[in-house]
């Protein structure tokens, strides 16, 4: 088992990023493994950028260091790019290919393919998932967070031998648990096939 694992989750306020973090931390807390999670609060409800830091293991502080993320999970592509400073050459980035337009007048949206190839050209390992489409297939656009959580678990790099079942147990306690479980499974399978 790794000594600790640093995970950064990013996206847009309203995408369920905090729920993502709470499910993950609940799985570890149930096993008696120390986990800390830091959230941006206050203005995050208002459609701004949101970062959630999750650190698992024998740690005393909650923030993932710049250049120190083991995994970056991006629920929205622009926000994923915005946090690439947390990556090092071994970091795995799992990104939803979907972009959400910021509610600002007269902005130019970048192209997803260009963003991804720019990141790759810097030597960043990036796996992409169309989580929005999978979430709709599972039954709700709101379950993008669970698709991406499934994707994280599929990487098989989480410490402490946690299983898919550990996650599904916690997800079963959420609202819309059937859709969320399905979304989790679909995200898991999607990442397994591209690994």
């Amino acid at each position: 088992m790794m000594k600790y694992c640093d995970i950064l989750v990013t996206g847009v306020g309203g995408q369920g990023i905090i729920t993502f973090g709470r499910v993950l931390s609940s799985v570890y807390n149930k096993r008696g493994v120390r986990v800390m999670m830091a959230e941006t609060h206050g203005m995050s409800q208002r459609g701004g950028s949101v970062e959630v830091h999750i650190r698992i293991g024998d740690i005393h502080s909650p923030l993932v260091p710049v250049g120190g993320a083991d995994v970056i999970i991006g629920l929205e592509l622009i926000e994923t790019m915005r946090v690439l400073r947390y990556a090092n050459k071994d970091t795995i980035v799992v990104a939803n290919t979907r972009m959400i337009r910021p509610a600002l007048p007269k902005i130019n949206m970048p192209s997803p393919d260009e963003l991804i190839s720019k990141a790759e050209s810097l030597g960043i390992k990036i796996l992409t998932v169309n989580a929005h489409e999978l979430a709709l297939k599972a039954g709700s656009a709101l379950s993008v967070n669970m698709v991406m959580l499934g994707g994280l678990v599929a990487l098989d790099i989480l410490p402490g031998k946690v299983t898919k079942k550990d996650f599904l147990d916690v997800i079963s306690g959420l609202r819309m648990s059937e859709i969320n479980s399905k979304a989790f499974e679909m995200g898991y399978d999607a990442v397994k096939t591209i690994l």
């Binding site: 847009v12 306020g13 203005m43 995050s44 409800q45 208002r46 459609g47 701004g48 950028s49 260091p65 710049v66 250049g67 120190g68 622009i78 926000e79 790019m81 915005r82 690439l84 400073r85 947390y86 990556a87 090092n88 050459k89 970091t91 337009r101 910021p102 509610a103 600002l104 902005i107 130019n108 949206m109 970048p110 963003l115 720019k118 810097l122 030597g123 960043i124």
Partner: peptide
């Protein structure tokens, strides 16, 4: 720490401040 050098301006990302709901 040895972060990958990212010049974020190169990405041309639109800003995303919090906005009125």
């Amino acid at each position: 720490y040895n972060p990958i050098k990212v010049n974020i301006e190169d990405f041309g990302l639109p800003p995303r401040p919090p906005v009125l709901c």
